[in-house]
Computed example of a mutant assay.
Amino acid sequence: MMTVMESASKIKVWFRFVPREGWFPQDTEGLWATRLSDDTASVQNAPFLQEGVAEGDVVRYRTDSDGVHWAVGRVSSSGNCTIRVVPVPTGPLGRSPQAVHQRLSAFNLAGEVFSDDFPMVAFTAPAGADFAGIKALLTQGREEGWWHYEVGCGTDEWWNA
Rank of each mutant, 00 (worst) to 15 (best):
A125F: 03
N108H: 13
G22W: 08
V59R: 01
P19Y: 05
T139Y: 02
G94C: 08
A46T: 08
N45P: 00
V13T: 08
G128Y: 12
R62T: 15
R142D: 03
V151F: 01
M5N: 10
H69K: 08
D64F: 00
R35C: 09
E6L: 14
R60N: 12
I83K: 01
M5S: 14
T63H: 03
A129G: 01
R16E: 14
F114Q: 13
E6A: 15
N108C: 11
A106V: 15
I134M: 03
C81V: 07
A132C: 05
S42K: 15
L104E: 00
V151G: 08
V68L: 04
L138P: 03
L109H: 10
G22F: 11
R103M: 02
F17T: 10
S7R: 10
V121N: 05
H148Q: 06
C153A: 15
A136I: 00
T124S: 06
Y149D: 04
P126L: 13
P119T: 15
W146P: 02
V43I: 15
S7V: 05
I11R: 09
E55G: 07
R60I: 08
F131E: 02
R95H: 06
P19E: 04
V75A: 07
A161V: 00
R84D: 08
A122V: 13
P126W: 05
A54E: 08
H148T: 13
Y61A: 04
W159I: 07
A8N: 10
R20D: 07
G91S: 09
G67S: 06
R35Y: 07
N80W: 01
W32R: 15
A129L: 05
E150S: 15
V68H: 04
T82Y: 06
T40E: 10
A41T: 05
D117Y: 04
A127H: 04
Q102T: 13
V88M: 09
W158N: 09
A54G: 08
V72F: 00
S96I: 00
T155S: 12
V4A: 13
M120R: 10
D117V: 11
R60Q: 14
A41C: 12
G133K: 02
A46E: 08
S65H: 11
P97G: 01
M1G: 14
R35Q: 14
L138K: 00
A110P: 04
G128I: 09
A125D: 02
S76F: 02
G91P: 05
V100I: 06
T155V: 12
S9V: 10
